[in-house]
Amino acid sequence: MVKIELFEVEQWMDKYENTPGVLNIAETCAASVSVDELVALSKDGNNSGNAPGPISLSTRMTYGAIRGSTKLRQHIADLYTGAGLTPENIVVTQGAIAANFLLFYTLVGPGDHVICVYPTYQQLYSVPESLGAEVSLWELKPENGYIPDLSDLEKLIKPNTKLIVINNPNNPTGATTPESTLASLVNIAKAHNITILADEVYSPLYHSTPAPPSILAIDPASSFTKTISTGSMSKSFALAGLRIGWIASRDPDLIEAAVAARDYTTISVSQLDDQVAAYALSPAVKPGLLERNLALARTNLAMLAAFVDRYPKVVEWVKPTAGTTAFIRFSDKHGKPVDGDEFAVGALEEANVLFVPASRCFGRNRDFQGYVRIGYVNQTEVLREGLERLGRYVEKHLM
C-alpha cells in the first residue's frame, strides 16, 4: 500500500469552507466568474449575441482530442511569451494538480532525489515522497523576500538529483522569483543535467512587479530542454470549476512520456471544459479577464496592507508581489507567535472568518508558528468584511 501524507491544506478547506455564513478569506482563486460574465468580457461582439458563444451544442460528446483541442493548446502556448511553443508542446489535464501528479508519476521513483522549494503547496513534495523519492526542502527565507537562494540550492544537489521543483509566483508567500534567479537556476540545472518543474499556476497575475518570463522562456534557443511548466484556469483566470490545467515543455520526449502515462488515468478532459477554456484564453476574452483580475488583486491587496499596517505590534508580513495569497505572522503583545490552529479555529468560531494555519498546512515539524495564509483576490466586499471581523478578533485577543 502506498503511504502518502494527509494533504493538510485541502483537508482543512474541506472541513471548514462550507461552514454556514463563513466569510472565506482562505480562497486562493481570483474571484470566480460565470460563463455569462466571460461572454460580457468578450470584445468580439458576443455580448450582443452576434457571434458564436463559448460552447458548441452540436458537438458530439466523444472523448474529444486526447491531448486537448488544438485551439486550446494554441492559446495556452501563446501564454508563454518568448518560449516559441506550439500546440505540440502542450498537454491539457484536469487542473494543474493532475498535471503535477502526472509529471511526478512519470519522472521520479525510488532511488531518485528531488529538491523542492519550501514553503509551497504540499503536493509538490509529498507526492514524490510517496513514489519513493528522497526529497530535500529548499527553504525560502523572509529576510530574502522568499526568493530562492541559489547558494542553498547548490548545497542540496546530489549525484542522484533528478528534479528541482519551484513555484512561481509562490504559494503561500506571494513572492516572485525574478528573471535573474531563474536564469541562474537554469544554468545550474544544465550543469548537473537536472530537470526543472515550475508550477506557474499563479502566473500571469503579477500585480505588483514586472512579470518575469516563464521557466520555458529562459534561454529558449539552448539545446537544454529539461524545463517544464504547469498551469491552470483556476487561479489567475478565475475558472476553477472548469478543472482545466496543462503541462508545457519544449522536450518532446517528456511530453510523449506524460501522454503515455495518462492513458492509465483520465485519458482526456471534458469537451465542454475544453471549449470554455479555449474561449476564455482567446484574444477576444483573455485581456479583459486578466484586466479584471489584476484590478481586483491591486484593490484588495491595498486593503490587506492597510490591515497589516493597523496592527504593527502583532501582525507582520513580506508583502506579496504576485498571485492571490499572503503569508502573515500573528503574535501576541509580547511578541510570542500565536498557535496557528487555535487562532484559525477561534477566528472561525467567534468571527466566522476562514483562513489557513500555516504550521499545519504548510509546515513540516510544525514550522511557521504564528503564520497563516490569507487569500485576498476574492470578492472585495467579502475581504473587507472578513478583515473587519478579523480586526475585532485581533483587538480582543492579541492587543
Rank of each mutant, 00 (worst) to 15 (best):
G145K: 07
G386K: 02
E291A: 15
V318T: 06
C116H: 02
R329C: 03
G174M: 03
Q11S: 15
Y264V: 06
A221H: 12
D199Q: 06
L294H: 14
R298E: 14
S249P: 06
A278D: 01
L387H: 07
L296S: 13
P212I: 06
S58D: 13
V9P: 05
T28H: 01
L354C: 09
T299Q: 15
T120E: 02
L72D: 09
V372I: 15
L182T: 05
I55S: 04
Y146R: 09
V345G: 04
L23D: 01
S56V: 01
K71H: 10
G68K: 09
A305L: 12
D199H: 08
P312S: 07
W246L: 12
V2T: 13
D273I: 00
T93V: 03
P252F: 13
S282L: 11
F307L: 01
E291T: 14
T28R: 03
E381V: 08
G363H: 10
G49K: 02
R262W: 10
P110M: 03
R67C: 10
L281E: 08
L103W: 01
R310Q: 13
Y202K: 09
F330D: 00
I247D: 08
S203N: 09
G245V: 12
S32T: 05
L137D: 07
Y376S: 00
I188G: 02
R364C: 00
N144V: 00
L254V: 13
F104Q: 03
A302M: 07
L153M: 04
P252G: 14
I247Y: 05
T173V: 08
I90T: 09
A77Q: 12
E388N: 08
G132E: 03
D309N: 12
T177M: 15
P52D: 05
R329M: 04
I247W: 07
L6P: 13
V91L: 15
T161C: 06
A238Q: 06
A51S: 08
L294R: 14
S151A: 11
N24R: 07
K15Y: 11
V345H: 07
T321L: 12
C116Q: 01
R364K: 14
S236P: 15
A240I: 09
Y206L: 04
D273L: 01
T265Q: 02
G386S: 04
P252S: 14
D14S: 13
T325F: 00
L131A: 06
T227G: 08
F101S: 14
V92H: 02
V135A: 09
